[in-house]
Design a binder for these strands. Structure first.
Lengths: 211, 211
DNA sequence: ATATAAAGATACAGATCTGAACCTTTTATC
DNA sequence: GATAAAAGGTTCAGATCTGTATCTTTATAT
């Protein structure tokens, strides 16, 4: 294996094992056996197991949010619809046979001290995820984008928790349905009449004047 | 300590430690140190650590559901309001300084194999909880009580997951607010005009004829 | 091609964990 | 009060876990 690939390969293997078995239940020996890398090598790339966990979470955090953004972006350019499309992304995640619950929630569940770096990594991921929802809610001109973002997030978390135990992807559809109802009645800002406002024109029909 | 109390005391201590530190991170030695019970004694009451976990979860499952029922029952006798009152119970749970996430979700997160007895205990608890919601939704004459129950459950799970990481009880209020909106627009059965129907009379004013 | 850094392989130290063994002391029951 | 059962206290076996040490082999860079 080429040197530059080893770190990535270790993170991949570790993430897979953490997801399948949890953090405490996944020993260093299993990670090196599964990845085919010598123990010496692992410890040259990561000082401690905690460092490995943090690096794995950082990688997954980045991946997850980039993938969600790109999935959502290419599905629709309407901000309102984008909020709903996050649930389609979630559904795809849950459909993965290997889904065993949100790895950040599990990480926080196994490292419960709020001062623990692993807990804080999970916290940060959730913050950034909510920030993305808020960005979408703002673009969709909701009057209280922060609140909308928190509600969307609550539905995401609920769907993941239920899916983890029921082993079904239905919760993502249910959450999307609930989100649709909630967004439909939520207050939105008056559309401003300035031409070329992206928040206004994005996702609007091609023939804007009722044709 | 009186013999008959030891088992209960061990379960209390174990539950507290599992909640504060997780399952793998809580060793037998810590449990006996914290409870002041000899190791021999612990192993006379529980054959293995897994047995102790299962007994602890069984106890908490029973407690939780009984307490939720009694909380809800004494708050209101109207079935519709009872569905919403479950979120007030949830809020009280989250307000507990020691809340560190749903112990059943954590248990499933640390024992991810669906065949694992611990995972199945968590699964069973969630099933029974949803069954209670369905009972309430049925009594409130919702047209699709199963669906309503699953939606309520999803909101509960979402609130717990968010609360675990954000360390706030606000998610319970948000979830209640969302539930209120959803229930308000959900289809309900026509009230049947037969006298003495409990589903109809339960929670009605004491003076039923407009006085 | 040679020097340098990293990877492989393995053994080991030290801690920790579960569960059993062993014996003494307390408690409950007749 | 005697007897039996359970609790206390401690030690230990065996496994496992993290992280280090040591040495050999491979790859890379000049």
């Amino acid at each position: 294996m080429r040197r530059s690939e080893i770190r990535d390969h270790l993170l991949d293997t570790a993430l897979q094992l953490f997801n399948e078995r949890g953090y405490h239940a996944t020993g260093i020996d299993l990670i090196i056996a599964e990845s085919g890398v010598a123990k010496t090598t692992l410890y040259r790339h990561f000082e401690t197991k905690e460092d490995l966990i943090l690096a794995a979470l950082a990688r997954r955090d980045e991946e997850d949010r980039v993938e969600m953004r790109s999935f959502v972006d290419q599905r629709t350019s309407d901000s309102f619809e984008r909020l709903l499309a996050t649930f389609d992304f979630l559904e795809e995640s849950l459909k993965d046979k290997k889904f065993r619950g949100c790895i950040f929630v599990s990480a926080a569940g196994e490292h419960k001290d709020p001062a623990n770096p692993v807990f804080r990594a999970a916290e940060m991921h959730k913050r950034l995820t909510v920030a993305y929802f808020e960005e979408l809610a703002h673009a969709a001109r909701f009057a209280d984008p922060k609140r909308i973002a928190e509600e969307i997030n609550l539905l995401h978390e609920g769907a993941m928790a239920v899916a983890q135990i029921s082993r079904s992807y239905e919760p993502a559809r249910q959450a999307k349905h609930l989100a649709g109802q909630l967004l439909a009645v939520a207050k939105r800002m008056e559309p401003v009449a300035s031409r070329g406002d992206p928040a206004q024109t994005a996702g609007m029909p091609v023939t804007p004047f009722g044709a």
